[in-house]
Design a protein around this nucleic acid. Structure first.
Lengths: 133, 133
DNA sequence: CTACAACTTAAAGTTGACTTTAACTCAAGC
DNA sequence: GCTTGAGTTAAAGTCAACTTTAAGTTGTAG
């Protein structure tokens, strides 16, 4: 199938400017420009964008994502490279998860505390202390 | 207790420039400058920095963190504001967690797949397909 | 034939969170 | 009295990932 930039934009909830930007930095390749002015995408581009979005969720920077796709063109020659890259990213993402989890717990405790504070303010009762949470 | 900027820098594993920057944007307040040239921090600053680091882990932007500390100066007047802010951040952080988790799973699957690929390349056996993972 | 919508481009601008630079200031030790 | 080290400042620079701008192109509808 063929798709216009606006169709891709809606599919992926990405501005057209971002899709053009990805082509510019080499993340999207072999985009046909019909009559030298309008872009046409196919299913390979859809697959590529799905992969990009997944890697973005894992916090892989765009230049690394690009490097991955380059490696992927010769899997046999680059299986070490790809494996190392993915292992490194697994570690980085896991670390980010741990941090985020710590942060979430902190915020959740604040929610509990300020829910109590809010009640106390409304009922004109003494404010709770941080230890009461 | 009193601390120099270098001591804080080591304690929090933050460059001195960052600590000065936090003061500049109003995240750290009431920093004494002895003889108008050297900063002196106390335990209140330590507590503040601990809180900043926690909020940063939850992905709260610095200007929001600053707003939190402003609210905190009059908890009774701002208990609604703080509670709303924390609830909104709980939601944002939870969403970020979900994304990160999706991303991590994607990367982990890649690790499994390319471990198999790597083996196959080394043993000169046929490459696995993505469905084999 | 003209207007319009839907694209196109290169280049400059934006954002948040710092970091670097260049020039300066003390206090202490030799 | 000079050097050194640990600090100081304001201002400019950096980075990633976009986004905006301004000017141009094309096919179609009226």
């Amino acid at each position: 199938m063929n798709y216009s930039i606006t169709e891709l934009s809606k599919m992926f909830n990405l501005p057209a400017s971002t899709i053009r930007y990805y082509e510019k930095i080499g993340l999207l390749e072999n985009v046909e420009h019909i009559n030298a002015y309008r872009r046409v995408y196919d299913d390979a581009h859809i697959d590529r964008l799905v992969a990009i979005e997944c890697f973005k969720k894992a916090l892989l920077p765009l230049d690394e994502i690009k490097r991955f796709f380059t490696y992927e063109k010769d899997i046999v020659a680059n299986s070490d490279n790809i494996l190392n890259m993915m292992k490194a990213q697994e570690e980085a993402t896991t670390k980010a998860m741990k941090n985020l989890d710590d942060g979430l717990k902190h915020v959740q405790k604040k929610v509990r505390y300020y829910t109590m504070v809010n009640e106390a303010v409304k009922n004109n009762t003494p404010l709770p202390s941080w230890e009461d949470v």
